[in-house]
Amino acid sequence: MDRFHELNAFIAVAEAGGFSAAARRTGLAQPAVSKAIAALEKRLGVALFNRSTRNVTLTDHGQRYFERTKLMIEELDDADNEMTNSALRVSGPVRISVPSTFGRLHVLPLIPELLTLYPELAVDLVLSDIVRDMVDDRVDLAIRVGAIDEPDAVVRRVAATPLVCVGSLSYFRDRGVPQTPADLVKHNCLIYGGLREAANWPFVGPDGPFSVSVRGNLSSNSIETIRAAVLAGVGIGFFTKGSLVGGLSGPDVVTVLDGFVRGARDVNLVWPNRRFVPARVRRTTEFFTEAIPKRLSDSGHVERTSMRSF
């Protein structure tokens, strides 16, 4: 029996939850669907479905096989649709994963422009600071800030955003301005990453890179939480500039220790390494390749202070 016929029958039964429903979906007779599944299970040497009088469910082997083969069928459908319709038509779903704060500040504002350009797209924007598994979570494109450790992914660097050490004027009026990184041990440093005790912030001096162990009364795995605390005058934060512009730009928030902060974080577009990339994903990637660097350069700035006391 044709393997593609078997695979189509398997996907239909898995999604419909039964042989009769799969037959109606595919337009085949129920015996033909059952025969295709039996042939597939015999060829693979495993049971793909648990069968009962009331329902049909995937076995563990069947679930793993479904997750792999579903992607293959979708890619084949994408290729068919692109050839059948037009290479210029961009339509269908695109799932985009991006860190929460960076996404809110720099990606979400670009979505209306993307949808105006390609009105037949259906964007699913996932804002999360958790690095998601692109295959398991069905992510078409990820926008990430920082190093990428995914050998099976395609990575395109599109921009860089510098690191900054930042606080509010109200905090510095009360506590003074740190003149050197060593002064941070006397300050309330707000720690991103959820570390409860201390963190090492990186700096560069005349003798090269070094780090300072800092502490504070607030830590969180959410950039939004630390940003809000900085704005409220709770303490000093250490971020990428791209995570600060917008809501924290303006005269009430300033950077300090600028002469000691030299690092930057790359902004990367990442997508699964597949042989076929749908037109909708290619066009979306091309859009963000141009739009994100412009967005970062056009965004507001964080004021810089001289090393003075208030």
Rank of each mutant, 00 (worst) to 15 (best):
F4A: 13
F4P: 02
H5Q: 02
E6L: 05
V13I: 00
G17E: 01
S20L: 05
Q30T: 10
S34D: 03
A38K: 12
A38T: 10
L40G: 00
E41T: 05
E41A: 02
K42E: 13
K42L: 12
G45R: 07
R51K: 13
T57V: 08
T57A: 05
T57R: 05
F66M: 11
R68I: 14
K70Y: 14
L76N: 08
D80G: 01
M83E: 02
T84A: 15
A87L: 07
V90C: 09
S91R: 09
G92Y: 06
P93H: 09
V98H: 08
V98I: 10
F102I: 12
P109K: 05
L110P: 05
I111L: 13
P112G: 11
E113M: 05
E113W: 01
P119A: 04
P119L: 01
L121F: 06
L121N: 07
A122Q: 15
V126W: 08
L127P: 12
M134Y: 11
V135P: 00
V135E: 12
D136C: 00
D137M: 10
L141D: 02
R144H: 11
G146M: 03
A147E: 06
D149P: 00
D149H: 08
E150R: 12
D152N: 15
D152M: 13
R156Q: 09
R157A: 04
A160F: 03
C165A: 14
V166H: 05
Y171T: 04
F172D: 01
R173N: 08
R173E: 11
R173P: 04
G176W: 11
P178D: 07
P181S: 08
A182I: 01
V185H: 04
V185A: 08
C189I: 08
L190H: 02
Y192H: 13
G193I: 03
A198L: 04
A198K: 12
N200S: 13
G205R: 00
G205K: 00
P209D: 07
S211E: 14
S213D: 03
V214S: 08
N217R: 14
N217M: 08
N221V: 07
E224I: 09
I226C: 04
R227T: 03
R227I: 05
A228G: 03
A229L: 06
V230E: 01
I236G: 01
F238Q: 10
T240K: 09
T240F: 02
S243W: 03
S243N: 14
V245M: 06
P251C: 07
D258A: 15
V261W: 11
A264H: 11
R265S: 13
D266N: 15
W271I: 01
F287R: 14
K294S: 13
S297K: 13
V302N: 08
S306V: 07
